[in-house]
């Protein structure tokens, strides 16, 4: 059974703005799906529709076979949701909050306490469990929300910007935890984020959305393939044969160019970035420079990161 199925899902608000437009997507159990897009792209609305908090205006969706529009409570029993607007009670301590939500999910007090303490320890909140939530920092609240979403051991976890407001160390920790939940427990993760670097660390598949539309979806390799290879070769040299300058539009990328020479070969200091199709091209380019009398000080090849793909796709749309 698929973990998530979206079939031409749409959500229009009463003002006429389409927050989700004809979105179709399927997630397998155990996937860590990165749902990426700028602010207002429709990520949170999608999470709310998938959990029955909002009714879709078109299409349908299923979470492990349950339709959240008809039986939201059935979906909630198997899903954990962490969003910015799902907060906890300031007058209760961290531990009391978790025990309360445990009880709301029908878990007995002893079992809730056990699970809560385990989660607080994993999320490095064990020193603060007796503090009232009002004394928690943003980062601590964020981590407690993750603990809350995990109390009933859901099959699928919806996380909306889980690492925003966290210091790099905590963010790394949370990422590690999410990765382990998917790897060891087979939990499906639906992760909405802007933080593409963190997303690239843990997601197995991505969907990029803008203005409610799913622009592309696939693994990082599939996304890279979708934009050519996208591979960039960086070379620092003191002489650039014309064949290379012509081979690429190197002039555009050069930095610190020395004195222009009248000869066909350009001399000076070049730091250039070339777009190449495959790694096979690297030795050919290097040998041409060397044969042309150039000294090479640096060669590196870089595959496009998720961030590169994201920016190139969103730039295309603007």
């Amino acid at each position: 059974m698929n973990a998530v199925v979206m079939n031409h899902l749409s959500k229009k608000y009463s003002g006429g703005k389409a927050a989700i437009a004809d979105m179709s997507l399927t997630l397998e159990p155990g996937e860590v799906f990165g749902f990426l897009g700028p602010n207002g792209a429709g990520k949170t609305t999608t999470v709310k529709v998938l959990n029955g908090m909002l009714q879709p205006t078109g299409g349908e969706c299923l979470i492990f076979g349950e339709n959240p529009s008809n039986r939201p409570e059935k979906v909630h029993a198997i899903s954990g949701v962490m969003t910015e607007h799902a907060q906890m009670y300031n007058h209760l301590t961290g531990l009391e909050n978790l025990i309360f939500y445990g009880a709301v999910f029908g878990i007995g007090e002893e079992e809730s306490r056990k699970r809560a303490q385990e989660l607080l320890w994993q999320l490095e909140l064990s020193d603060a469990w007796e503090q009232k939530l009002s004394a928690y920092s943003t980062g601590m609240r964020q981590r407690l929300s993750i603990a809350r979403a995990l109390m009933h051991r859901p099959k699928i976890l919806f996380l909306d910007e889980p690492t925003s407001g966290l210091d790099p160390e905590s963010a790394h920790n949370v990422n590690q935890m999410i990765r382990n939940l998917a790897k060891d427990k087979g939990m499906t993760i639906f992760l909405c984020t802007h933080q593409l670097r963190y997303a690239q660390e843990i997601c197995t598949r991505y969907g990029l959305i803008d203005e409610g539309r799913l622009l592309v979806e696939g693994t990082l390799e599939q996304l890279r393939a979708g934009m050519g290879s996208g591979m960039k070769l960086r070379i620092r040299t003191d002489r650039l044969p014309d064949s290379i300058a012509g081979y690429t539009d190197a002039d555009k990328n050069e930095k610190n160019r020395g004195e222009a020479s009248g000869s066909r070969e350009r001399q000076g200091a070049y730091d250039i970035e070339l777009a190449i199709k495959s790694e096979e091209e690297i030795p050919r380019i290097v040998s041409r420079i060397v044969q042309g009398g150039g000294n090479i000080y640096h060669v590196s090849a870089k595959r496009p990161s998720l961030e590169d793909i994201y920016f190139s796709l969103t730039a295309e749309r603007r």
Binding site: E73, A77, A86, F105, G106
Partner: peptide, 14 residues
């Protein structure tokens, strides 16, 4: 007002 309603609505209660 204290943003806890959404959390309650995500519970398995109708």
């Amino acid at each position: 007002e204290q943003s806890t309603l959404e959390t309650l609505l995500y519970s398995p209660l109708t």
